[in-house]
Design a protein around this nucleic acid. Structure first.
Lengths: 137, 137
DNA sequence: CAGGATCCCTAAGGATACTG
DNA sequence: CAGTATCCTTAGGGATCCTG
């Protein structure tokens, strides 16, 4: 169809073993694909943070979601939670080595986004223009 | 606290400009963080596919979600949709160059998952054992 | 075959109030 | 400060039926 097309000769970068049945991809996405996890990880990449510090650093997050998010990250061994029995209480969150390794991945995501966001935005505008009445958006 | 701790000296891998306000990370995750997009992309990484082929290749997906997923991917310029006006109709989906570049990213996700899934599973078991009654899970 | 149109249901997330 | 406890709204997604 379209003129010079590299066609099917493109080597399969990802292939999920034999008959792909989920690989581990969905695993990661179920973990960091939510609304706040990566943002918290990104902030913690700068160093240790306390609860309120995190909440201020991650703009729109509610205290409820912050609590849930750090709990999950802690459960998965991506961050540590250190309670100082002072008054008022003081709780510190910090990335574990595993959590830190995740920042590399997040960096890859950010890089990809930076490289393609313009093209994607353009594609969207074009598509929206070509489909004035779409159930999507 | 814990013995030899690399502490705050860890260089910030990701930092989102100055005061991070979302970077482009959420952008990517909003795009591929859903339940099916990556799986469809992974399948299309093998080459061109038709609608039913995709549905069979991605086990649990409903036709509704497949429709929505490919629409979104098409809108973002990650895949192309080619309609052959035959009877019965035949529609082919294929990765665009941008879409193909995404497979590299997905590969990074899969690799990270493979490297850490055991550690994470262990961390979970430990955490669950230490917190018998947790609202999380 | 490749969808569109509906209906329904659950989980994610927001807002608010309260506590150690 | 660092949470917990409720309540409520929405969006994501599944199931089913219908059509060109």
């Amino acid at each position: 169809m379209s003129a010079g097309h590299t066609a099917v000769t493109t080597p399969p970068v990802v292939s999920c073993g034999e008959e792909h049945e989920d690989c581990g991809i969905r695993d990661v996405l179920d973990r960091i694909g939510d609304k706040w996890s990566v943002l918290v990880v990104v902030e913690l990449a700068q160093g240790m943070r306390r609860f309120r510090q995190l909440q201020r650093a991650v703009p729109g997050i509610s205290q409820r979601m912050l609590t849930l998010t750090v709990r999950r990250l802690e459960r998965d061994g991506l961050i540590t939670r250190t309670v100082h029995p002072t008054v008022p209480p003081q709780v510190e969150y910090e990335l574990t080595p595993t959590g830190h390794s995740l920042t590399h991945l997040v960096k890859a995501l950010a890089d990809w986004s930076a490289q393609h966001r313009d093209a994607i935005a353009r594609a969207r505008r074009d598509w929206d223009a070509a489909h004035p009445d779409a159930g999507i958006r």
